[in-house]
């Protein structure tokens, strides 16, 4: 994938090419999640809805923003599913198992807690690098998002692209 990057993928934007506004929007995709998670704690779905909304609103602004919003959105899916699994399991224990828990439940609880912690840490790092106009790749989600956004095989129209109609021509010499 890397060896053929020149031909298969669009060139990556460099920090000096990325305007301040784009960096902030890219960073926002990660930071917005923290506020959404706080709101969504009882029902871990609002954060995903917020991430989808943020992605839909911002994805056409530029490839740099598109990449970060997509990476943020995709990386939230597994943690959201894991949190839902925990919520359903806990509800089952509360309502049907009369608070009888197993080691597998406690193991799951700790592992999901760790997954959330890692997700928070990496999201903060990604937000930091996005603010600096840099790419930051999560395991799997980074490569997947890069392919979706920068692959030349994907046709996606960004704001400003294709809007210029060529009318002014140089004189015929």
């Amino acid at each position: 994938m890397i060896e053929n990057s020149q031909s298969i993928y669009y060139p990556l934007p460099q920090p000096n090419e990325i305007p301040e506004r784009e960096r902030e929007d890219a960073m926002g995709s990660y930071l917005m999640m923290f506020a959404a998670v706080a709101v969504a704690l009882p029902l871990p779905i609002i954060n995903l809805v917020a991430a989808v909304a943020y992605y839909m609103v911002n994805r056409r602004k530029s490839r740099f923003i598109h990449f970060h919003t997509l990476q943020s959105l995709l990386s939230q899916i597994p943690t959201t599913l894991l949190n839902w699994g925990l919520l359903i399991w806990a509800a089952q224990i509360w309502f049907f198992d009369h608070l009888e828990t197993t080691n597998y439940f406690w193991g799951y609880l700790i592992t999901v807690g760790l997954a959330n912690l890692l997700y928070f840490i990496f999201s903060l790092l990604a937000a930091y690098y996005a603010r600096k106009g840099q790419m930051y790749y999560f395991i799997f989600f980074g490569k997947f998002s890069y392919h979706q956004v920068f692959s030349r095989t994907k046709s996606f129209k960004y704001e400003g692209e294709g809007d210029i109609t060529i009318e002014n021509q140089p004189p015929k010499m």
């Binding site: 597994p78 894991l82 197993t102 080691n103 597998y104 406690w106 193991g107 799951y108 700790i110 592992t111 760790l114 997954a115 395991i139 799997f140 490569k143």
Partner: peptide, 18 residues
């Protein structure tokens, strides 16, 4: 990479469970 993530999660889960 995705497989590594999934397997890693299951292994850690089993580890903490036991």
């Amino acid at each position: 990479d995705f497989l590594k993530l999934a397997v890693g999660f299951v292994l850690i889960w089993v580890l903490f469970s036991n």
